[in-house]
Design a protein around this nucleic acid. Structure first.
Lengths: 345, 345
DNA sequence: CTGAAAGCGCTTACAG
DNA sequence: CTGAAAGCGCTTACAG
């Protein structure tokens, strides 16, 4: 283990000043081509890697982006969504040689405190806000702080920061029209947290579409995305006198749990019950029958979010138009599989 | 958004030197109690938070730990294991006000390169090595680099770095004896990557135990942990002439997929087939029947790993004995559920 | 095009 | 107990 090599070492070896080394390394004017080439060769040979802290201190930028996730370990673990999202985010960040700092928090208050500290410490240059709510304190908080941020979800009305989102309303219409075409007239829905923005958007879209299609019943039950609650609610739904012929679940985990409950009650899928899942993860193809689901490229979505954040921070290769405060990502696509079929009255 | 407050501001306000402020803030001798109290009050009032980069540059420590995950986004997303592990790691780190830097890599070579860069940049003070292999280049690599590291898995023979691991052999015996007691004589196993250390340990333990119990058949198939492969292999196993009456899966995802295949083939679980899963995640309780599985507290395991790493780095509250190079974590417990039952010949 | 110097915001020996 | 100063390893105006 040899001592770290610094620009001072390179300067000494090349017989130039530290300033010249810095200019050469960063591809800035101020050194002749021959000097630059020579310096670069020496730096490479000595295996030079700039010290982050020193660089950060000089340019007052952390070269890192933060994410605080406010979900329990159990939810985080089982929902494929987050790891896919993080994976996409990470790909973009590391391409721009930005680091990703992750913290898991319990409450909004802790989350806000984390943002305050990160920004005060300059540990991050910006943050990504996940799980955007209908009335989200975090948006104004980070804006007031001056902390660059991007909302992973939307659209956010009157937002002071950019949002990257999918149109959730359209896929909801598509699902309901599809089920209607299959003859389903009594549909139930197991939704996610009521306070989340995309839940509210879906709530409205289903209600509007159901009204237009003149469905007999379209009932929504809110839950916490866990399999436990998904199973419990499904059990209740399927035990009712006039049970629905189709259930739509707001995530894959609850849909898998719902399918388990149908098996448990001896209700055949899709003959007696059709099931649709949001968020097509490999999970949806593990079951028998495989689950009809709404496919989104969450990894690509994560990458897009990170790109917008880098552009806000001012580190993106091609800065996105400043007025592009609301970036719409391609909507989810319905992938019909074995869990949906014609309604049998 | 006000300007950041620095120790210079506090020094000016308190009428002392920057050095005195630093001593006061860090609880070190060099200032009188009255001065210290006064300085702390002013710092709190001004909302002082030390700049990370400056601190890191001075003490040459990043106050951060790194994890490079070499798994595809899809595997990472669906396996609850990683998020639970990370969640546990994170809890310990943030308690010690250490950050977590995450990077997802494609190949070992990229992974090694990430470690080299992180350490050269002093972006991290140490790393956690996941997915320890039977012949793992990374162990010597980080040791040569002088980069503090802890292996998340083991035991590692002749290791130059600490390892935190569970005894995998004992639970394997327990499963097999349990199945044997239920009357199973033909057992198959869908294992994980062959090159992983814990896979090798389980391979040996199953083989030894099977020999002792004089099972009729104990066959192992290696896979990549995905549901796709789990399903494919299960299909093949269940299509053989003398199919086994029990299958053990090395992770939860493959077990769920295997259960799906059994449904697909009209094989009743547990009447005609018993299924056991390693790694009890909520996933195992979503299915019908629920899966008998090996429960480990992965979050606690992650915390333990982080603690050992912090102690290696020298930042832990109570440093772990230096000779404690191999820390054994409590072994997995068998949780019998609906997916296992007596063998019916 | 190049060099010497100041500065980023901390920590830490070293004198008084 | 306290202050003035040097240093961590970079970047960046500012003179030559």
């Amino acid at each position: 283990m040899t001592r770290r090599v610094t620009i001072a070492d390179i300067a000494a070896a090349a017989g130039v000043s530290k300033g010249a080394v810095s200019y050469a390394l960063n591809g800035r004017p101020g050194v002749s081509e021959t000097t630059r080439t020579k310096i670069l060769a020496i730096a490479a040979e000595m295996g030079f890697v700039p010290n982050r802290a020193a660089r950060s201190l000089s340019v007052s930028s952390a070269q890192a982006v933060g994410i605080a996730l406010r979900r329990s370990a159990r939810t985080l673990g089982i929902e494929p969504y987050f790891m896919e999202l993080i994976s996409g985010i990470e790909a973009t960040l590391s391409a721009g040689s930005f680091g990703l700092t992750l913290q898991i928090v319990d409450t909004v208050d802790v989350e806000l405190e984390v943002y305050r500290r990160w920004w005060a410490e300059r540990r991050v240059d910006g943050v990504l806000l996940c799980d955007v709510g209908t009335d989200d304190r975090r948006l104004d908080f980070v804006a007031d702080l001056g902390l660059p941020a991007v909302a992973v979800g939307g659209p956010v009305e009157g937002a002071r920061l950019p949002a990257v989102w999918h149109d959730d309303a359209e896929p909801c219409r598509e699902i309901l029209e599809y089920l209607h075409a299959l003859g389903h007239r009594r549909v139930a829905r197991v939704a996610g947290f009521e306070h989340l923005l995309h839940t509210a958007i879906r709530d409205r879209s289903y209600a509007d579409t159901a009204a237009g299609l003149e469905l007999e019943a379209m009932e929504t039950f809110h839950s916490d995305y866990t399999g436990e609650q998904g199973a419990r609610i499904t059990r209740r739904i399927l035990s009712s006198a006039k049970r629905p012929t189709a259930i739509i679940f707001d995530n894959d985990v609850m849909a898998v749990a719902g399918l388990g409950v149908a098996h448990e009650l001896g209700i055949r899928v899709p003959d007696e019950l059709s099931i649709v899942a949001w968020d097509d993860s490999p999970l949806c193809r593990l079951t028998h029958p495989a689950l009809t689901s709404l496919t989104r490229d969450i990894t690509a979505y994560g990458s897009q979010c990170a790109e917008v954040l880098l552009s806000v921070i001012g580190a993106a290769p091609s800065p996105i138009d400043e007025r592009a405060f609301s970036v719409q990502f391609r909507p989810a696509q319905l992938s019909p599989r074995g869990s949906t079929g014609p309604a049998r009255p």
